Computed example of a mutant assay.
Amino acid sequence: MVSNKHTVPDSSRLTGWYKSSYSGGSTPQGECLEVARGHAVIPVRDSKDPHGPALVFEPSAWSAFVSAVKRGEFPTT
């Protein structure tokens, strides 16, 4: 399933994909990420490309990223 340590080449082979409730279609080009539940690692993919690759994160790295986003550590343009 995982081609290397950090990617899955065809993310459609994984189950449990969902989009954030904040991705309600209000973005002009539908720029959304999807995350898959129920895996030992955290796969993340572009919602516009469900058969494309997924990046894979260790749970601790994903948790740190989400916490940083919630704290506003990433500027928005």
Rank of each mutant, 00 (worst) to 15 (best):
V8A: 11
S60K: 07
G16R: 04
E34Q: 10
W17Y: 02
T27Y: 14
Q29W: 09
F57S: 00
V41G: 07
L55Q: 01
V2S: 11
T15D: 12
A61F: 06
N4L: 06
S11D: 09
G38H: 02
R45T: 02
N4Q: 09
P9A: 15
V35T: 09
K19F: 00
P43T: 12
G25E: 04
P53T: 09
F65P: 03
S63F: 03
R37W: 02
K70W: 03
R45N: 02
G24H: 08
S3A: 15
P43K: 09
S21T: 15
A61P: 05
D46Q: 05
V2L: 13
G25K: 03
M1P: 06
A54T: 08
K5C: 13
N4Y: 09
C32I: 06
E73N: 06
P75D: 10
P59H: 02
K48Y: 09
K19W: 02
A64Y: 03
R45I: 01
P50V: 06
Y18D: 06
A54W: 01
E34K: 00
N4C: 10
L33F: 09
T76Q: 09
R37H: 06
R37A: 11
G30W: 04
G72W: 02
G16K: 04
P43N: 12
A54G: 09
G16P: 01
S11F: 05
Y22L: 12
L33D: 06
T27R: 14
